[in-house]
Design a protein around this nucleic acid. Structure first.
Length: 829
RNA sequence: GCCGGAGUGGCGGAAUUGGCAUACGCGAUCGGCUCAAAAUCGAUUGCCCUUACGGGCUUGUGGGUUCGAGUCCCACCUCCGGCACCA
């Protein structure tokens, strides 16, 4: 008998699936569309094609493919597409280092991914394949940009960016390591430059509210997004600088502490700062301070443990609740990006304001009674961030601060000095990159007309070829002079193209919709196709995308729905995040040399083994440690199933006859039905694939245990045959080639066209149960009992047990607990 | 600091509603087959005491609820992830 040869089996089925285009599905209205079936959109995050696939990819697509197969066999028309997130920095950095154009390296990598996906046997609808770096795709990325621009959701504004003075270039955040340029090690500066933004902050409220529309997302992902959006309720209160006739609004979550404000602080970037200091004695000192802050790295400035610094401005503002004049300061602990860039400082009830007050010898005033042991900085128990009755707050004294809160806001509103307000931590999405390998931003700058969008019929704005990819303080595209020079679409005058490209997160914010109509030349997608397939029923990917990618895609979906291009508000109804695979407990990285190449393992053990192993090594949502011995264990299991199939096949045909099966034959049938039930429930209960695979292993083990004793009996052979075919059917989502092969040999049919099995309740139930007998909660005996036995009979059985008697000797049973079908507990004294 | 998640054999991990702790796999030990090895088949394998029969202990730590706790409650410790001067 030939042994298990995965290579031959896998090649056979991969060829058949490719030739028959088995996994392709048609849109409504197209030939071959299965209108009678419910749809299921199963999607894994598209890979970024850089080099070869790694084990993280293998795990993601193995998990997603298992789900796709499971749904297909439950009668769903499953759309399961694949593509490549093929713009991005690594390809460009590689180009700078080696001179190889990004396109060449990217396309070579795509070829490698495509080949390996086929070798892994992933059930992909290849007719829908796309890559975001192709003009056919980014034409529509640009089209969406223009629609957002028309709506005011894409805008240009000045923003601080990371600037390397030596390389004279803007750096992406991830290129700044410990405040220094990744390439030359120079200290990075902040500069203000004109940048493109998407107005995601307009959607902050909906991005929060619509978590309710999701079916099933991991709780921690929702929490992470909630924190990222960072909604705070409070009030905007206006403080007035009488000398200069200037109003300074501040945002505060604690209007109840207004009476405790003893000073006032502006961010160093505050636009009114210049007016406040012009011609005053502190002018020089403040400028120096502001410049010093501007040179600081973001990390340093964000460090909470650093001593507070700042400069007094020699000006005052009036506290609207009590008319007190309080001094103004500039300090870097106040951020321009949040709220209004100015704060009222309440050192008695805020730790940061307290630290500043101590450093500058400013008064600390208590306005709420109470003490916080944890943070108390002085003998009076201040600063105190908690709640309590108010004091030193005029007519609000004695009132609980939470009650006074609304009253104070209402009073301010009446005075025209404030109102309730909501603030978000979320900032607008900065999408422009001074980089080559991305989708060009489709706008033109005209002296006369200003910013002019490229007309739709001139899309795509194709990426020009350049020789030098290294940024020189501007986008590498700026060097393509012939490309940059164009004419204004509005007035025809000479004009220049935008040379920035888009963040690659823009490309990946809508790819899942383009899959639904990937070759459409006339429109971004056919509305009927999008309406049919969306939302994605099951999205699978790494938890590292919990915030950015998933939130950007949610934002795009909402914006596109507002543009009347979509009918859904949320793109991904169910989300599954897989955990990271480690090696020897450490994150895999090329520099550590501990990477696992899936290609090697597929070559050595076969795709079925590699796929089943990543599903078996632990709960898929958690991480797991790769072990070569573990891979071999799975290989052994699949070989055992294979040899069982060959043995059974050689013994000839025999029908399953549950009625005729007795003894071990019946037990084996029961085990098979138990496995069907177990695997089905593991799928439904959140993809617990490790225990699902374990259940199939148990079934195969049981078949090995009993087979030689029951082959002689036709019903026995039938039972072994059924167990083997069932094991193949259940392992198919994880090991599709072996599953298909064994099923074909035993059943003569295609497993993926065979409905998922259903466990027979009659075989799940057993006539007898093992009764656990405890004395005082401790296990003393196990007794076989009829599963229908009444409580009294179970009790009698328990008391008869010799082992139980020994422990009851000389004691009185004061309580008897019976859980029918499970256990008896005798409480003795 | 804030918000999540997790602590179970030598290792990865299992335990559905509060009811047999350690399924399944790895590793290890022993045995069958073999001249031998590999492959394979089978047995044993939480810890401690005991020749044995048997007994005791055990799910990060300490307490609690309960006939009964890995599971529920309280306090604490450790590790991992996210956010972090966000007013």
């Amino acid at each position: 008998m030939a042994g298990y040869e995965p290579k031959a089996i896998e090649a056979k089925w991969q060829q058949l699936w490719a030739e028959e285009k088995t996994w392709e599905v048609a849109n409504p209205g197209q030939p071959g569309h299965a209108a009678e079936k419910p749809k299921a959109y199963v999607l894994e995050m598209l890979p970024y094609p850089s080099g070869e696939p790694h084990v993280g990819h293998l795990k993601c697509y193995a998990v997603g493919d298992a789900i796709a197969h499971f749904r297909r066999r439950h009668g769903f028309e499953v759309i399961h597409p694949m593509g490549y997130d093929s713009f991005g920095l690594p390809a460009e950095n590689n180009a700078i280092k080696t001179g190889e154009p990004p396109r060449a390296a990217t396309e070579r990598s795509i070829e490698s991914f495509r080949r390996q996906f086929r070798e892994w046997g992933i059930s992909i609808d290849w007719s829908r394949e796309l890559a975001t770096h192709t003009p056919e795709y980014y034409r529509w990325t640009q089209w969406i940009f223009l629609r957002l621009f028309e709506r005011g959701l894409a805008y240009r504004d000045e923003a601080p960016v990371q600037w390397c003075p030596k390389d004279a270039t803007v750096l992406a955040n991830e290129q700044v390591v410990d405040g220094r340029c990744e390439r030359c090690g120079t200290q990075v500066e902040q500069r203000r430059l004109e940048q493109w933004f998407f107005k995601i902050t307009d959607y902050a409220e909906r991005l929060l509210a619509d978590f309710d529309l999701l079916e099933s997302w991991p709780e921690h992902v929702v929490t992470m997004q909630r924190n990222w959006i960072g909604r705070s309720e409070g009030a905007e209160v206006t403080f007035r600088c009488e000398e200069l006739d200037l109003d300074f609004p501040v945002f505060t979550t604690r209007p109840d502490t207004l009476f405790g404000a003893t000073f006032f602080v502006l961010a160093p970037e505050h636009p009114e700062l210049e007016r406040l200091i012009a011609g005053t004695p502190v002018e020089e000192e403040v400028r120096e301070y502001v410049n010093r802050v501007a040179r600081e790295s973001v990390e340093d400035r964000g460090d909470e443990d650093r001593p507070k610094t700042g400069v007094p401005l020699g000006r005052t503002v009036v506290n609207p609740v009590n008319g007190e004049e309080i001094p103004m300061f500039v300090a870097d602990y106040v951020l321009m990006e949040y709220g209004t860039g100015a704060i009222m400082a309440v050192p008695g009830h805020d730790t940061r304001d307290y630290e500043f007050a101590r450093a500058f010898g400013l008064p600390v005033k208590r306005v709420i009674e109470g003490a916080d042991e944890e943070v108390a900085g002085d003998e009076e128990g201040l600063p105190y961030p908690g709640d309590g009755p108010m004091t030193g707050s005029g007519r609000f004294d004695g009132k609980h601060n939470r009650e006074a809160y609304e009253e104070i806001v209402a009073w301010l509103k009446g005075e025209g000095r404030g109102e309730s307000a909501v603030n978000y931590r979320l900032r607008d999405w900065l999408v422009s990159r001074q980089r080559y390998w991305g989708a060009p931003i489709p706008v033109i700058y005209c002296e006369q007309c200003g910013i002019v969008p490229v007309p739709d019929d001139q899309l795509p704005v194709e990426l020009p070829e350049v020789d030098d990819y290294a940024p020189q303080g501007r986008s590498p595209l700026a060097a393509a002079e012939e490309w940059v020079a164009t004419e204004c679409p509005r007035c025809g005058a000479a004009a220049r193209r935008e040379t920035d490209t888009m963040d690659t997160f823009v490309d990946s914010s809508w790819y899942f919709i383009r899959y639904l109509d990937p070759v459409n030349q006339e429109a971004v997608w056919d509305r009927a196709a999008a309406d049919h397939w969306l939302p994605v029923d099951q999205y699978i990917g790494g938890v590292e995308h919990a915030i950015l990618h998933l939130m950007y895609a949610r934002f795009f979906t909402k914006a596109l729905a507002d543009l009347d291009q979509l009918s859904v508000q949320e793109p991904f109804a169910n989300l599954f995040t897989q955990g990271m695979i480690t090696r020897d407990g450490a994150k895999m990285s090329k520099s550590k040399g501990n990477t696992v190449s899936p290609g090697e393992y597929v070559e050595r053990y076969g795709a079925d083994t590699a796929r089943t192993y990543v599903c078996f090594m632990g709960p898929p949502e958690r991480g797991g440690d790769w072990s070569d011995e573990g891979v071999e264990g799975v290989q052994r299991f699949l070989s055992r199933l294979w040899r069982l199939c060959e043995e059974v096949e050689a013994k000839g045909d025999a029908a399953v006859d549950a009625g005729a099966a007795e003894g071990e034959a019946r037990e084996l049938l029961a085990k098979a039905h138990w496995a069907i039930d177990k695997v089905s429930r593991d799928f439904e209960r959140g993809f617990q694939f490790n225990t699902a695979v374990a259940a199939v292993m148990e079934l195969v083990n049981e078949a090995y245990r009993v087979k030689d004793g029951i082959y002689g009996d036709p019903a026995g052979l039938g039972a072994v045959r059924f167990a083997t075919a069932t094991a193949a059917s259940l392992i198919f989502p994880f090991a599709p080639h072996l599953g298909a092969e064994v099923w074909e040999r035993l059943e003569g049919r295609r497993i993926w066209e065979t409905p998922w099995p259903v466990a027979d309740p009659a075989l799940l139930a057993s006539d007898t149960v093992t009764l656990v007998v405890q004395v005082n909660g401790k296990l003393r005996d196990r007794i076989e009992a009829s599963s229908e036995a009444p409580e009294a009979e179970l009790l009698a059985l328990a008391r008869e047990s010799e082992k139980v008697r020994r422990h009851l000797d000389g004691k009185e049973v004061v309580k008897e607990i019976v859980v029918p079908g499970k256990l008896v507990n005798l409480v003795a004294r």
